[in-house]
Amino acid sequence: MEWTGERIIPKLLKPTNGMLLEHVARYFFALPYVQGRVLDIACGSGYGCHMVAKDRKRELVEMVGVDNDPEAIAYATREYHHQKVTYRQGDALDPQLPALLGTFDTILSFETLEHVADDRLFLDHLVQMLNPGGTLVISTPYGRGRGMPTSEPFHVHQLTEAEFQHLFASYPELSVEFYNQRGPTFEKERREGVRYFLGIAVCTKTS
């Protein structure tokens, strides 16, 4: 199986794999916010969509998993089928994406921001597609900053923590809470001497 980019395929990994645990933890973190019509942008192999649909089946009306890789979409459709989940191919920066997908009550975007050339446009699309009262849960790894090189071959850049938080300042309609992820755990308050590698924002659209 040859896919471009970074993909988590649980069926090919040991349950103790650190990266798998981190990715699954983000979906567990987001579960309480999931309701109504839900979008998972850059859904990859589809395990997250399936996990969310099973856990939140009463609160979930429909879930749409979108990825730009047709092989990933084919795999997700085959391996992680659920009656409330639809998988679609799409580009996060496509200017027609909001019109194609419609609006959502919950949007999940995990480890995608660092892969797109224009993170501001990407966030514009997500905010546009989020219904008033809806929740966006979005994460990204911290790094050297916008426009700076990264050691990860599939990352365009990795924002600093300050840049990640400042990204939301342009959206007064969003009420945002920030968390830091270290391994499978999330902390709102920083602990002295602890290095946090990833940030996650929970954004509620107030209007």
Rank of each mutant, 00 (worst) to 15 (best):
G102N: 00
S170M: 02
P132K: 10
V156M: 14
L20I: 05
K205Q: 04
P70Y: 09
V194H: 10
T106D: 04
F29W: 11
L93E: 05
L31W: 01
Q128M: 04
H155F: 15
L198N: 10
C43H: 11
I138S: 09
G134N: 01
K11G: 07
R7W: 15
S170G: 02
V116C: 12
Y87D: 10
G143C: 15
A201C: 06
A201G: 04
V66P: 00
M63N: 02
V85C: 10
A76V: 11
G143I: 03
F186E: 06
D119A: 13
L130G: 00
D55G: 01
L97V: 02
D124T: 00
Y80F: 15
R78Q: 15
E6D: 13
P184Q: 01
V194P: 06
G102H: 01
L174W: 11
H157F: 15
F29C: 07
Y171F: 13
G145Y: 14
K205Y: 06
A162K: 13
M1I: 04
P184C: 03
E79F: 10
K84P: 00
G133W: 07
R37E: 01
T206E: 08
G5H: 10
M148D: 06
T4E: 15
T185N: 15
G90P: 12
S45H: 11
Q35I: 04
V202E: 03
A30T: 03
E114T: 08
L13Y: 09
Y27F: 15
Q158S: 12
L130T: 00
N180I: 06
N180P: 02
N68A: 06
C43G: 05
V194D: 03
F154D: 07
D67V: 05
A74V: 05
R26G: 02
L31N: 05
E59L: 11
E192Q: 14
G65T: 02
H82W: 11
R146K: 15
W3K: 11
S139R: 03
Y196G: 05
E59Q: 11
V137F: 09
I200D: 02
F28N: 07
I8H: 10
A30Q: 05
D105H: 14
E22G: 05
T77C: 15
D94F: 11
T16P: 01
S175I: 04
T112C: 13
Y179D: 04
H82T: 13
P149C: 11
E6L: 13
F168V: 03
P184G: 02
A25N: 13
D105F: 13
H125N: 04
F29S: 12
A25I: 06
W3A: 09
E6A: 10
D40V: 05
H50Y: 13
V137H: 06
T160Q: 02
E192I: 12
A30N: 05
V34F: 09
V38C: 12
E189Q: 04
R191M: 09
G48V: 08
F110P: 03
E161V: 14
T103E: 08
K14G: 05
N68Q: 03
V176K: 07
E177D: 15
N17Q: 08
K54I: 09
V156I: 12
E173I: 00
Q165S: 01
F197I: 02
D55E: 09
Y75Q: 05
N131G: 00
E62D: 03
T112K: 14
N131Y: 01
N131P: 01
W3Q: 06
L60I: 10
P98Q: 05
R191L: 11
P15F: 01
H23L: 01
